[in-house]
Design a protein around this nucleic acid. Structure first.
Lengths: 201, 201
DNA sequence: TAGGCAACCGACCGATTGGTCGATTTATAA
DNA sequence: TTATAAATCGACCAATCGGTCGGTTGCCTA
């Protein structure tokens, strides 16, 4: 019956990609289904065939995108051996020329403002955080075993590192002129240092 | 002509307060002018008399609110003498029972997602950041003079502290179950420590 | 060839919403 | 008392948008 068996997967990927770019460019509050249809090269009815409602589509977009970023982070981290290098392997997220980065931050901010009020988005966020935390936690535990770090609560430290990264990235993205990349990278390193090697003042 | 000369100021304050609460509760994208009218106890026409458009009103709401938070932070900081105490005087922003805090974070997230795409909001943000930075910078400069800190670029350190605070607060607010207040305060202290006393590992 | 179904189209509907505008009230000034 | 203008009201308009639905196309199977 279906002309191509994988057609559904192909179309859904097409639609998600088009929706992601459209949302990123206009903001979730301003995006219309027509915009997304146009970007995806489908009609309204065609899109409705794959995603029944705007909310269903948006949730899928966010979920898919976060997964993508997480996988990239994971792979990047795996390139390093040293636990400290692993924990600092997020430089690529401070690269404005990276397409994921450029598309990602606007979407991230949108998702945060949605997460404030809607359970569904909040739990999306929670899951994403947990992924990061477990990634970072593994690196910290590794460092503890190798006696590079001492007396750390690896989980809460992992949470702190990921938060600090995000805080700095927010400024870097929203007010780049005053918060250039060198500032971001350097600040990140120093703050992380304080988290990994506390009480040695 | 006007029955009470200060009526305009009173009404505007009324409207701003009502709008702030409504935006915070529903999200800027879902708030209608009717909602705000109802909350302010005015009719549509009545509100239009003071704010000609939704955008004009919203900008005023955000501006006013940021100013309020900043003034509170400033006053709180002035209660302390020691530069380090000053830099850590933002505990009140980790208090979920504080009305400004409860109302504030949702509005802050909304403003960030607006700032991504709209110049007006971006510069609002920029100004707010600069206020914070100058506050923190003064405290750091004070500490440098008193030889509590050494070899710091006070401005970029101030930017980092404010970013780190915001990153941690974001998690604390959006995912409190996994990021309780004790975690937030402790992480903040450690990270700040790394920024104020670097290269002593 | 006929039947069936997935894929896709786009006109249309109902609901919502920001902003307008003429009407009404109220208080000051002449 | 009257004229004037600020303050306020709420019905109304035009535009937008999400979702629906009847219809068309084209492949697959019997």
């Amino acid at each position: 019956m279906p002309p191509i068996p994988e057609l559904e997967a192909i179309r859904k990927a097409q639609i998600l990609e088009a929706a992601l770019k459209t949302i990123s460019a206009s903001g979730y509050a301003n995006v219309t289904m027509d915009d997304i249809c146009r970007a995806a090269g489908l009609s309204k009815g065609g899109l409705a065939h794959y995603y029944r409602s705007k909310n269903e589509l948006f949730i899928s977009v966010f979920k898919e995108f976060f997964e993508r970023i997480f996988q990239r982070s994971k792979q990047t981290m795996e390139l390093y051996e040293n636990p400290i290098d692993k924990l600092l392997s997020f430089d690529w997220l401070y690269d404005r020329n990276d397409p994921d980065v450029n598309v990602g931050y606007p979407v991230l901010f949108d998702c945060m403002s949605l997460a404030v009020r809607e359970k569904e988005y909040r739990s999306l966020f929670h899951d994403w955080f947990e992924n990061w935390v477990s990634l970072l936690k593994d690196a910290i535990d590794d460092g503890l075993e190798k006696d590079i770090f001492r007396n750390l609560d690896s989980e809460s430290t992992a949470r702190a590192i990921s938060s600090v990264y995000q805080g700095i990235a927010t400024r870097w993205y929203l007010d780049y002129d005053s918060h250039p990349t060198e500032w971001a990278v350097e600040s990140f390193k120093k703050a992380i240092n304080g988290l990994l090697f506390p009480n040695n003042r």
